[in-house]
């Protein structure tokens, strides 16, 4: 097997849990400061994507185009606040810059933009498209002779109502693309209500199996279960030397707005920013006790972009 340089943080489960708590803290303040954005999905996916970004996604934050990197595609691009917070905690840029989210001229656009922010592999936002792109990236790695480069894609559960998703699922199953790993944020909530009421997607595991994928179900808020799930997924990939001939999907059972107490599991929080009094309550539920929103914001530090700047912008 080709030598594969690993570039991850290898945090303990307790460290991952604490990082995810801070990631939630930052997401809430970002949406609150911007007076817009989507807090619901980012908070449900925060635990398992923190584990992925800190411990499994090979990357070099100050060199986002490093050849040996894995790829991450946020197919549900409206969860951009989570993507940006994870990048900040991984070291792409300082946390203070997160508070420029959704302001004019920022790299942190409402939905991730490849042309604005180095480290975003492809622009997303129109639902249902990311999995096809991620699959193309996985095929590209294979055609370049580096199948150990793994492509991770995250989808929302409501997003699975898009037809393009199932075209990609069929394609990856057919091509036995085993360097592709999909995570689904299965929080059962979308804008118009609970997914099962809007347009049910169950039985989801059976659907993926029928399309020739290997499937794993995990508790998306239990760090030990989350770590086991990512280990399970990677054990079937060329990266670990065990190409299994099937793409992998983890269905993470989650709760929208997890960690915010009285605000949890309410679909209305899909795309509603918390007001000042609400964000204070949410932060308190997460264990952060601030005297004011200003004090909470100040804890993130200066709002300066200190990440990688592309050649053409220098």
């Amino acid at each position: 097997m080709r030598e594969c340089k690993l570039s991850t943080l290898n945090l303990t489960e307790e460290e991952l849990t604490q990082t995810a708590r801070l990631v939630r803290h930052d997401i809430l303040l970002m949406c609150n400061a911007a007076k817009s954005g989507h807090p619901g999905g980012p908070l449900s996916a925060a635990d398992y994507l923190t584990a992925l970004w800190m411990n499994y996604l090979d990357c070099e934050p100050k060199n986002p185009f490093w050849e040996g990197r894995d790829r991450f595609v946020l197919s549900n691009g409206h969860c951009s606040a989570l993507n940006y917070a994870l990048m900040a905690h991984r070291g792409y840029f300082s946390r203070g810059y997160l508070l420029t989210f959704r302001t004019l001229g920022t790299r942190l656009q409402g939905h991730p933009s490849k042309v604005k922010l180095p480290g975003v592999e492809v622009s997303t936002g129109s639902l249902g498209q990311g999995l096809s792109v991620a699959h193309g990236m996985a095929l590209g790695a294979r055609m370049r002779g580096v199948p150990e480069r793994t492509v991770f894609c995250n989808c929302g559960d409501g997003e699975l109502q898009e037809g393009n998703i199932w075209e990609a699922v069929m394609h990856a199953g057919h091509r036995e693309t085993d360097n592709l790993v999909l995570s689904v944020d299965f929080n059962n909530a979308q804008i118009d209500g609970y997914v099962e009421n809007v347009k049910g997607i169950e039985p989801l595991a059976d659907k993926f199996e029928a399309f020739r994928w290997r499937v794993h179900i995990a508790n998306g808020h239990d760090m030990s279960d989350i770590v086991k799930a990512w280990e399970w997924a990677l054990e079937g990939t060329p990266k670990r030397g065990h190409p299994c001939g099937q793409p992998s999907v983890i269905l993470f059972k989650t709760v929208m707005m997890e960690g915010t107490g009285e605000f949890e599991n309410i679909p209305g929080w899909h795309g509603r920013p918390p007001k000042d009094d609400e964000v204070m309550k949410m932060l308190k539920a997460l264990g952060f006790d601030y005297g004011s929103v200003e004090e909470a914001r100040a804890s993130l530090g200066e709002a300066v972009y200190d990440g990688y700047v592309p050649e053409e912008e220098r």
Partner: peptide, 26 residues
Amino acid sequence: PERFVECGIAEQDMMNTAAGLSTWGF
């Protein structure tokens, strides 16, 4: 044949599969 990707009758998937391939310099 190794550089030809048959996508079946799925134009949306084909467009984005091509997008993913292009990120590798193809």
